[in-house]
């Protein structure tokens, strides 16, 4: 418990700062919604006044103005930016938490204490997880309140929660990815640059892949495990990508655990 408490206290500042970052992001993005919604009204109005033949001629006959321009649709469109921020937070956390002793040269201090490495690993992991859970709860609250303030009207709660949960799912995957990276690279000089490189790299890979119509890329990029339009239509995730995410998550955790408990700690240098 002492390691958990110690790590959690050390994380409190960064957790708080990340919540602030997310608050800023959600405020900015969600404040756009009223403008978007009023445009939608104009558009809807325009559509309704167009003769059916004209709509068909413009290729718009199949558009359901109610879902296509709904709040959730808007939410799904801005969500990748929240995911990106969340993934950076989680990745930084993952890279940093086990390698902390390596960077501050306190490995000797910690590992010469009467404590199992397993306990250290689990305590640190639990502390990181707690930080993310707190962030997740704050995030749900922010987006929900944001939706209410910006006049989103009524929307499907299930769909909203399914979309919002993706934030935490992506964070979990990146946390474990970060842990593994920290165990594979012996000396991490700057956790920030590695974290940014990995998250942005995967984000761009995902976006480019989809843009190029390559669906397999969705297994590669955790940002693309969930297709928000699919969630809006079906109120469910596509399980095959979720399985890919869970497998990656478990593989990273198990590998970093094994590496952490087995590694020889040579002299500090």
């Amino acid at each position: 418990m002492n390691v958990f408490r110690f790590e959690l206290r050390s994380l409190s500042r960064s957790t708080f700062l990340w919540i602030l970052v997310l608050l800023l992001l959600t405020s900015i993005y969600m404040s756009v919604y009223p403008a978007f919604a009023s445009d939608v009204d104009t558009l809807k109005n325009l559509y309704s006044h167009l003769p059916a033949a004209a709509r068909a001629a413009m290729g718009l006959s199949h558009i359901d103005t109610n879902t296509q321009f709904s709040f959730l649709n808007f939410y799904g469109n801005i969500f990748p930016f929240f995911m990106l921020a969340g993934s950076i937070q989680a990745m930084l956390l993952g890279v940093g938490i086990l390698s902390r002793e390596v960077r501050s040269k306190t490995t000797d201090f910690l590992l010469s204490k009467p404590i199992r490495r397993r306990t250290i690993f689990l305590s640190k992991y639990a502390a990181a997880l707690t930080s993310l859970v707190v962030t997740g709860i704050a995030f749900v609250a922010m987006t929900f309140i944001g939706a209410k303030i910006t006049g989103a009207g009524s929307f499907s709660m299930t769909t909203y929660l399914l979309i919002t949960a993706v934030f935490s799912i992506v964070q979990l995957v990146f946390l474990s990815l970060g842990l593994l990276v920290s165990q594979l690279i012996k000396k991490i000089k700057s956790p920030a640059s590695i974290s940014l490189a990995v998250t942005l790299g995967l984000f761009i890979t995902g976006t480019l892949g989809i843009a190029l119509g390559e669906d397999k890329v969705r297994y590669l990029s955790p940002f693309k495990y969930v297709d928000f339009l699919y969630v809006i239509d079906h109120k469910a995730y596509e399980w095959q990508y979720l399985v890919a995410g869970i497998s990656l998550f478990i593989t990273c955790i198990v590998m970093s655990y094994l590496l952490y408990i087995r590694r020889d700690r040579r002299a500090v240098d």
Binding site: R100, S104, K105, T106, F109, S112, K113, P114
Partner: peptide, 15 residues
Amino acid sequence: AREDVGYLPSEVFYY
């Protein structure tokens, strides 16, 4: 085994 041990390394580093 480490419960009853105190260790002082040649170079000390802390958080």
